[in-house]
Amino acid sequence: MFLNVGTSSFTQFLSTAAPDLLPGRRPLPPGSASALAPHATTIVALTTADGVVMAGDRRGTMGNLISSRDIRKVHPADEYSLVGFAGTAGIALEMVRLFQVELEHYEKIEGAMLSLDGKANRLAAMIRGNLGAAMQGLAVIPLFAGFDLAATDPARAGRIFSFDVAGGPYEETGYDGIGSGSLFAKAALKKRYRPGLSADEAIRIAVEALYDAADDDSATGGPDLSRRIYPVVMTATAEGTNRLPDAEAAAVAEAVVAARMENPGG
């Protein structure tokens, strides 16, 4: 089964060789499953002068309960792109893993990376494949951002794509957020975002936006100073993807909290 000529797409290979490994292909019993599985929420992304920044809070919820205080929702998709997710955590983690393998697989088979638009389209196809589950309450919405190696102007190399349950992708200008707290996070970003931000400024603004989301949305967690759990912040630039080390994320989060002690509204 591995020797068929086939395509360079790993999901297309799996759909014939091992369809049980693909999320979205499994028959679901009738009824809504939305209350059964943990949900993940707010992710924000914004473009900077040299790429993109993506940040996500750490809370997973199940109904009115907090199911996880330190879930990680922002992941590198490959060397130059990031993916964050909101929605049913179990399916989303599986989809992120599959997406990472999909991109790496293409790169190994073809000896070249997919274009950034190609990556976004593959992710859209995966989300569309999950439509049945989404209609039964197990929706996953990703946010995809990356550094476009084909961009001629480095200031426009950072690009962000959003999706809905039916797929996408929709390219966003400047910034975007997903998840239950995104309403508040995007409102904060709208006031603070400007083109050409430095990476440090953008990281601060992203963490502030997550703070604002946590302020007004119960499913979004703020920086947990007592347990030392801070937002996951990642960047994608010409040098590749990078996760902000815990110490630096802590410093930013603590600075934001300290500033809110003076002025709770930011």
Binding site: P76, E79, V96, Q100, E104, A112, M113, E239, G240
Partner: peptide
């Protein structure tokens, strides 16, 4: 060459599955 630069030794090609 469209291949990406090497991730540094301190920067694993991490995945959700092998955190």
């Amino acid at each position: 060459d469209p291949k990406p630069p090497a991730p540094g030794p301190d920067k694993p090609a991490e995945s959700a599955g092998s955190a």
